[in-house]
């Protein structure tokens, strides 16, 4: 059950995923294990907020009913969000946070690389811009997965546990989807058919260096970002993120 046309839904999927991932990163403010890592996470978060805004602005123009980027971020309910289930999961420890970040970065990296060649010029421009930033994000999160996986006995165990916790939500990163197929057939975006294989190849490569075992392919289950059927964690995240704009609509300072 979707409200908008396929292209707008696709833009929301990109924008919402970036925004929710950024909001999770912000939760580390003042609590990160090291100051440098805190700055790193905030910088990645900042890039993602900017990317979300670019996708939202395009989506808002298509919706064309007075909606703007802020409305999309702060005035929609849980069921209207199209972000990946992966990014709404709680941060857990640093290992869980970095595992989520790595899976998401690898997905963004390959997806944006493909979208850079989109016929839709706006999508191509946002993708090209974002990709530059995401290349850095992926480099950093890959390095952490390697360093923790191939680190001490405890860091290795924690990484394995993190993969156990997060892996089941990655089915969304490797599923084929009719809406996206239709978008590529109508010429808006390139075919994304190789995205699952490319994502998996990157994960495989980094896991090998990190001495981590790649789990079996994840099973699809009843939750789905595409229909707004989220896990229980998105609602509480939005309650915090949207509080100010909900309590004081159109507040500015």
């Amino acid at each position: 059950m979707t409200k908008y046309d396929e292209l707008t839904e696709f833009l929301l999927r990109l924008g919402d995923s970036a925004l929710i991932q950024a909001q999770r990163l912000c939760e580390w403010t003042g609590r990160a294990p090291a100051l440098e890592e805190e700055m790193g996470m905030m910088n990645v978060g900042l890039d993602l907020v900017g990317q979300a805004r670019n996708w939202y602005e395009y989506a808002a123009e298509r919706i064309n009913d007075g909606t703007d980027a802020d409305t999309l971020a702060f005035r929609r309910d849980e069921r209207a969000f199209r972000n990946l289930l992966l990014v709404e999961q709680p941060n857990g420890d640093f290992a869980v946070t970095m595992t989520k970040q790595f899976f998401y970065d690898a997905w963004q990296f390959h997806l944006l690389t493909m979208l850079k060649g989109a016929n839709d010029e706006r999508i191509a421009a946002i993708a090209a811009k974002s990709l530059k930033e995401v290349t850095y994000h992926l480099r950093r999160s890959s390095q952490w997965v390697e360093r923790l996986g191939d680190g001490t006995e405890e860091s290795h165990q924690r990484m394995e546990k993190a993969v156990d916790i997060v892996w089941r939500f990655t089915f969304e990163l490797v599923e084929k989807n009719d809406a996206e197929l239709a978008l590529s057939e109508s010429g808006h975006i390139p075919a994304l058919t190789e995205l699952p294989e490319q994502w998996l190849a990157t994960v495989n490569e980094v896991f090998a260096k990190a001495t981590l075992t790649l789990p079996d392919a994840p099973n699809t289950f009843y939750l789905s970002a595409r229909t707004g059927m989220h896990s229980e964690h998105l609602g509480t995240l939005l309650a915090e993120m949207q509080f100010l704009q909900r309590a004081y609509p159109d507040a500015s300072w």
Partner: peptide
């Protein structure tokens, strides 16, 4: 290149090339 982006950065203070990266991200993006 993506995963081998190690570059030799010259210290702006003394000009030495013997420098190391502390963090991929600094005070601004």
């Amino acid at each position: 290149s993506l995963l081998s982006g190690i570059t030799q950065v010259e210290c702006p203070n003394c000009g030495s090339e013997d420098t190391e990266q502390l963090s991929e991200f600094g005070s601004t993006a």
